[in-house]
């Protein structure tokens, strides 16, 4: 067993966990924050995407004890049904989901992707590595590719992110 203190969605959470517990299972099973999903548990789908100190990661491939003192933002930290985050609202408006299971990961990723573009992080499809990246459809598709949606809502997800990106510039 190991003790770990995390800041989850702004709240301090002290946990005593089996050292083997992933960040994902700490959230879902111990803190009962089940918005973060387990799709594959092996870093192959992106459903477990959360933000740690502002960066998106797959929470299934990291141990909770490795995050002592870290600030974790999950889907529950972005908005609530009565007070949606703009990205959540855009997903509703554009029907950017179907079964809903990959959706929290898609939304967390989308929020982080817009920040990554702003921060000037290049991508596989950036034509020129030495200039600032633009929020193009091709850039968004490539950057969102770590979030699989088997329902195939990609075209709508892209519309949702594009709308939010437009509102930010």
């Amino acid at each position: 067993m190991s003790k770990v203190t995390l800041t989850v969605n702004g709240a301090n959470r002290e946990l005593e966990l089996d050292t083997r517990t992933t960040l994902l299972d700490a959230l879902r099973e111990h803190l009962q924050l089940t918005g973060t999903k387990k799709g594959c548990d092996h870093g192959q789908c992106g459903a477990c995407t959360v933000m740690v100190d502002g960066q998106r990661i797959n929470s299934c491939l990291t141990l909770a004890v490795m995050h002592e003192g870290d600030e974790i933002t999950t889907i529950e930290g972005l908005g609530t049904p009565g007070n949606l985050h703009p990205m959540q609202a855009a997903f509703v408006k554009h029907d950017g989901y179907q079964c809903g299971y990959c959706t929290p990961g898609q939304i967390c990723s989308a929020v982080a992707v817009l920040n990554e573009i702003k921060a000037g992080i290049p991508s596989h499809v950036s034509a020129d590595l030495t200039v600032a990246q633009q929020t193009t459809a091709a850039e968004l598709r490539e950057r969102m590719s770590g979030n699989i949606c088997r329902c195939g809502a990609y075209s709508n997800i892209l519309d949702a992110i594009t709308e939010v990106a437009g509102g930010q510039t």
Binding site: R28, K38, P81, L84, G100
Partner: peptide, 21 residues
């Protein structure tokens, strides 16, 4: 019309089977 379950799905509050604590 927008899906009536959309706010639940987009906020991670729609409960799936394994999550029924």
């Amino acid at each position: 019309v927008d899906r009536i379950d959309g706010p639940l799905k987009t906020t991670g509050t729609a409960p799936y089977a394994y999550e029924r604590h």
